[in-house]
């Protein structure tokens, strides 16, 4: 009878231990890490930086939580919280991919609009320069203004290279700068042409 009781006790302990054991969510963790890597490849660091950081922080917190549970005695391990964090990190990373793609497309569209605007500005400026009265007193002005147009066209070409390479965010700032400069050149040329026409 006593033997049976002690056997049952031992068996209960063993079963209890076995029941208490839970698996570390390594596979899920790796899947989340891969999702973050996908977000990095999708340039989420640039186009959706807040989401990217949130996903990274969540995965880091999950990593700490997993380590905390790994350090506990097998029976007491519980990876529920870590699993939630891992899932959250993955979902946020996936959202970051989508958002980065959308933002990238928006910036790309903005870039292409800017390129067209600058091309139009340069064409208008060239036209204004071509229509300027040519003759004594204007040749140096026209020559120097042509330099401005050439420089603007070169700057646009350089910025367009960035666009073609897919660096839309950097290109956007570059294009805005070029547009500012070309607008200034155009207004200078318009003023000079008006001055020359009045002569």
């Amino acid at each position: 009878m006593i033997k049976r009781v002690s056997s049952v006790l031992v068996a209960l302990v063993v079963v209890g231990f076995a029941a208490g054991c839970s698996e570390s969510p390594v596979v899920e963790f790796e899947a989340s890490r891969a999702a973050i890597e996908d977000a990095r490849v999708a340039e989420a660091e640039q186009y959706a930086p807040e989401l990217f950081k949130e996903a990274s922080d969540s995965l880091n917190a999950a990593s700490v939580e997993m380590q905390r549970q790994d350090g506990r005695f097998a029976t007491f391990r519980s990876y529920g919280q870590a699993e939630s964090m891992i899932l959250a990190a993955r979902q946020i990373a996936e959202k970051a991919v989508v958002e980065a793609g959308a933002e990238r497309e928006l910036v790309r569209l903005a870039d292409s609009t800017l390129i067209v605007e600058i091309e139009t500005l340069i064409a208008d400026t060239k036209q204004a320069l071509a229509a300027a009265p040519k003759g004594k007193g204007s040749r140096l002005d026209l020559k120097v203004m042509q330099t401005d147009i050439d420089a603007a066209a070169t700057a646009l070409t350089a910025a367009t290279e960035g666009y073609n390479a897919g660096s839309y965010l950097t290109t956007n700032e570059m294009l805005q700068t070029v547009k500012g400069q070309v607008t200034k050149v155009k207004s200078d040329i318009d003023a000079a042409v008006t001055r020359l026409t009045k002569k």
Binding site: T147, D148, A151, A155, E173, T177, Q181
Partner: peptide
Amino acid sequence: RAASFSVQMAEALLEKGQ
């Protein structure tokens, strides 16, 4: 004039952190 354009571009880009 071309140098002036380049300097203005450099100033504007520097301000934008480019």
